Simulated scan of single mutants.
Amino acid sequence: MALKTFKAMLVKDTGDNRYTRQIVDKSVEELPPGDVLVNVRYSSLNYKDALSAIGNKGVTKKYPHTPGIDAAGIVAESSVPEFSPGDEVIVTSYDLGMNTSGGFGQYIRVPAGWVVPLPGGLTLRESMIYGTAGFTAALSVFRLKESGITPDRGDVLVSGATGGVGSIAVSILSQIGYSVTAVNGISDKTAYLRKIGAKSVISIEAATDQTGRPLLKERWAGSIDAVGGDILVTTIKSTAHNGTVTCCGNIASPEMPLNVYPFILRGVRLIGIGSQNCPMPVRRKIWEKIAGEWKIVRPDPLTSEISLDELDHQIEMMLQRKRKGRTLVRMTE
């Protein structure tokens, strides 16, 4: 190929548990083996990317490394018949950006089994407004609907509602007819949450029970929980008979001190959402939903767009929990 070098964020281990981040020139030859070489046009910033960028060994084991668990771009080279140069594609999850050079570089090389053809109805830019966070939110909505939680069943609670997963979940649910109650963040984002579709907004304190009772008053037909910890426990105890709670995060805590009563007395279902290794047939189905009936009509309130050069600052903002919605990373200069 004509272009031998490209721009990428590179995180280096400088010793003494210290890590640096800078934008560097990398060579295509440095990329790992794979079936498909993709010219990345857009990426997005996720919390997992921020952890990789500060040397979290639970996410990335070896450095130097280029994070970025999301990428959307154009196939530059392919060794498999499923993809051809010029195809528009999405790559999210699997090992991208964790231990495989990721979407914060202008090129990635990955196995064909990680690549999703861009569905009709989405542009490359729009696909990264969703990215892994939006895919996780849509997969959560899919599981709620699959378990029989329809809009007429009652209110659906979304925790972590100002974050990437929560914001997309609020928007999709409200757009397809659900009454959504959103849990506000550490700082007051009520106006933002109402703008993206929340019918009601409650505080973290109101979403967290301190009584220790085994069951609470039935409040929710279902819930999409993105934080874990006490809010998840309280939500499960407050879910109505035959309701469903999905769980996809642990930013509050990975612990879940809970008894069995919501499950054996109310028939509450708890469904884990693991988007990283979601089977490809389901993955394609969810992306088709995102491109079709679940496509957010007005995504602008959800999204801020930055260049690769602005990424370092936004990583710091995310680590300090000062970001809301989705941060789109424009990879072209």
Results as ranks from 00 to 15, higher is better:
A206Q: 15
N242L: 14
D188F: 09
A53M: 08
P262K: 08
Y63I: 14
T244L: 11
T244R: 03
A71T: 10
E146Q: 15
K145W: 04
R213I: 00
R153H: 07
P85A: 13
L144S: 02
T5Y: 06
G267I: 10
D225E: 02
G325C: 10
D225P: 04
Y261R: 13
P85S: 11
K145I: 14
V110D: 01
V233F: 01
G34R: 04
V297Y: 00
L216F: 04
G185F: 10
L215G: 06
I264P: 00
E305F: 07
A112H: 05
G228F: 02
K12A: 09
R213M: 07
G325T: 10
M317C: 09
R283I: 12
K145Q: 15
A133Q: 06
R194I: 05
G222A: 03
L139A: 12
D155Q: 07
L96E: 02
L139V: 08
T100W: 05
V245R: 04
V89M: 09
S307Y: 03
K322A: 08
M317W: 03
L308G: 03
G113A: 11
S52I: 09
I231H: 02
N39I: 00
L319Y: 08
I196Y: 01
K7T: 11
A206W: 00
V329P: 05
P85L: 10
S147M: 11
A191P: 01
S52V: 07
Q22K: 14
V233E: 00
